[in-house]
């Protein structure tokens, strides 16, 4: 098994930095704009893309992402649109693309078929916020067969036994949930995040991404001091909602510490 996500995280390390993982939901505000926004996100510093599939019952998400994905569904987003969008994005940028999805859409599409079509579209794997390793055998089999990454979540409340199991079955990275809560910007990244990453290290984790509540360059820098990846979602979604694709380009440049914004002319 070769993980493009792990290779990207390692390459960033070699350059002496951590990776910025940027989240956007597909279909918000429309399929085309979400594709342009994803491309702008990478052109302006995201090393890895996390593309969310809009879902009717997103229990892990805060208001910003809930409202964006509700709008995507109201605008007619369909699951089958996702693969074409991933294909178009992966044709245009080299950053690996992980899809973030709640589990029922995958079950209804067919786990095996979903894995096959995601691979064909150039996707790198899945982040599954409501699928724990204990329930994931079908996905583990399908992702092995199609050589896809599988990113499971670890929480401050997880026991050491569970952390070890999560590390064992994850590929790409382990998604360390920074705080006991849902997605959305917070003033401070919880010290719980640092503790959790230390516990994951002690249990043998080589690749860890920290997410939930990270919205500023300062927080990204803080997290990348001890983790391979910093995951930013709601702040980027807000920028897209407020200022369109150029807003995404600006915040991505800011989050990745770049002084200049790339490719914005095309979007204005």
């Amino acid at each position: 098994m070769s993980s493009r996500v792990e290779a990207t995280l390692d390459a960033c390390r070699t350059e002496g930095r951590g990776a910025l993982v940027g989240y956007l939901p597909l279909g918000f505000p429309s399929i085309d704009e979400s594709i342009e926004a994803a491309v702008a996100l990478v052109e302006n510093g995201a090393d890895i893309l996390e593309l969310g599939l809009p879902y009717s019952d997103p229990v892990m998400d805060g208001l910003v992402i809930q409202q964006a994905t509700e709008k995507a569904l109201a605008n007619g987003f369909r699951l089958r649109d996702a693969f074409g969008a991933v294909k178009e994005i992966t044709d245009r940028v080299s950053a690996p693309v992980l899809v973030m999805t709640y589990w029922n859409p995958v079950v209804q599409y067919g786990v095996e078929k979903f894995a096959r079509d995601l691979k064909q579209a150039g996707g790198a794997g899945l982040i599954t916020p409501d699928l724990i390793p204990d329930e994931a055998q079908q996905w583990i089999d399908a992702s092995d067969k199609h050589d896809l990454d599988r990113v499971f979540l670890a929480a401050p409340s997880s026991t050491d036994t569970r952390l070890a199991e999560t590390i064992r079955v994850s590929r790409g990275f382990v998604y360390a949930v920074s705080t006991m809560g849902i997605t959305g910007a917070r003033a401070d990244v919880d010290t719980a995040a640092h503790n959790l990453v230390s516990r994951l290290r002690n249990a043998g984790a080589k690749h860890v991404g920290v997410g939930v509540g990270i919205s500023t360059r300062e927080q990204v820098v803080e997290v990348l001091d001890y983790a391979e990846g910093a995951i930013v979602g709601s702040a980027i979604v807000s920028a897209l909602g407020d200022s369109g694709v150029s807003g995404v380009a600006s915040i991505a440049a800011r989050l990745s510490g770049r002084s200049e914004v790339q490719g914005v002319a095309r979007h204005t």
């Binding site: 229990v59 892990m60 916020p129 724990i132 329930e135 929480a155 409340s157 997880s158 809560g181």
Partner: peptide
């Protein structure tokens, strides 16, 4: 049945 919830809730469910 089963448990299809975020990992954050597993400790509380246990």
């Amino acid at each position: 049945g089963g448990r299809f919830v975020p990992e954050s809730l597993i400790a509380a469910l246990d």
